[in-house]
Design a protein around this nucleic acid. Structure first.
Lengths: 226, 226
DNA sequence: ACGGTAGGTGTACGGCGTACACCCGTCAAG
DNA sequence: CTTGACGGGTGTACGCCGTACACCTACCGT
């Protein structure tokens, strides 16, 4: 009855990971500190270290949890649609967790081996290609060609940033137009093209699928001539 | 004559940026702190703030310096080889500064507008496509298709990591083989394939160019049918 | 009844980015 | 020649970070 003595649910690695992901989702990865995670769990910072070795291992765990969210390969589909579905599922996951690409990249570079879930993901992706009749060295090429798209992100260089507060020292539009004529032309064309759509006038999802399909088509052509 | 009173070369934005890049090159971006940069310059940390507004602005400056290293477009070449050369030049720059992709990605996500040098790079890249006869909306697609490859990195997920000290808790090879059969098959095939080559047996440069060419071929086909 | 152990606590250290007050040399205006 | 503003380097201090280390406590099998 006494609220003061009421004990919290016990900590666990999963609970730590989950709140860490939640915190990153709402505040970005910069807002993720051991101290904040602990606070969110109503616990003292050092308590976390009974469940994760250190912050990097926590980040690895978060990655693994996310990669685990990606749909398993669909059994009844040709390689092309199976790959397509899987990649789009990965992308959906990443859109739910925008901080993830950076963390995945950083941790991948720092570790000797990718995390287990990533290994499993890559392995089963290779399996799809193999089952689709790709010889093993063509699969190797294919994995490189897919590059970052394999994991659903393609390093979008111009996302919709119109919601951002503009840089205070940003040059005025007319100067932009003079200095970057081609960029301006393209931006204007894209904006006019789909003025009915709210937002940037650039459908990122469509562009992602366009690029993905172009890549898959290229691979298909390679497979046929091999 | 007295060494003690010998005055250092005066600080400047350029000198700060240059030593920052040098420090990052040799120690990775994690080893880059205002305090260390100051120390390398024989100066007190706060002195840097007379030349850069804050650390993020310093990172922006570093990016701009690097992007400025990329070769300008070759005037006398068809669009395909012009793009190819430029992208490969970008890649060369990034191989010199392995920490750069992560920083570029992080800063791009944080800023409303890319840094000026990046804008100029993108603008002139668009210019190449336009000069090659691409209609503006096809250029738009092309830029998305190129994705991260535009900047020379394609998020290499499996680089050569054989030099890394193996994870102490890494599963033994036979367990790897059992758990990730396709990955193992591929790794073995690649290793055997080019056993004459020292290193991982996977020529990253060749793979990058392979993927780049496949993409450019796809774009060329689109251009012809447009 | 008792020792071990798993899990939460408290304190402390060194490093970080950077706000703010200061100080000193140079140089233009009076 | 004096003066005062100002650009550029300094010193101190604050609040945050990750985490080492000692501790305390509640539960467990013997």
């Amino acid at each position: 009855m006494e609220i003061g003595t009421q004990q919290r649910a016990p900590l666990s690695r999963k609970r730590v990971l989950d709140t860490a992901v939640a915190l990153a989702d709402e505040g970005g990865v910069d807002a993720l500190s051991m101290r904040r995670i602990a606070q969110a769990l109503g616990v003292v910072p050092m308590a976390l270290y009974k469940h994760v070795a250190h912050k990097n291992e926590l980040l690895d765990g978060m990655i693994d949890a996310l990669v685990g969210e990606i749909d398993p390969p669909s059994a009844d589909a040709d390689w092309k649609t199976a790959v397509r579905r899987r990649v789009l599922s990965a992308r959906r996951m990443l859109l739910r967790h925008p901080w993830a690409p950076a963390v995945i990249e950083a941790r991948m570079k720092a570790r000797a081996t990718p995390t287990p879930a990533v290994l499993a993901y890559l392995d089963s992706m290779i399996g799809i290609f193999r089952a689709g009749g790709f010889p093993v060295d063509l699969v190797h090429h294919a994995m490189h060609v897919m590059g970052s798209r394999l994991l659903g992100f393609s390093q979008e260089l111009f996302e919709d940033r119109t919601d951002r507060a503009p840089d205070p020292d940003a040059p005025p539009p007319e100067e932009m137009a003079a200095r970057y004529p081609h960029l301006t032309e393209l931006a204007r064309a894209v904006a006019h093209d789909e003025e009915s759509v709210v937002g940037s006038g650039c459908d990122d999802q469509a562009e992602f699928e366009f690029a993905l399909d172009l890549t898959l088509d290229g691979l298909e052509r390679l497979l046929r001539t091999a």
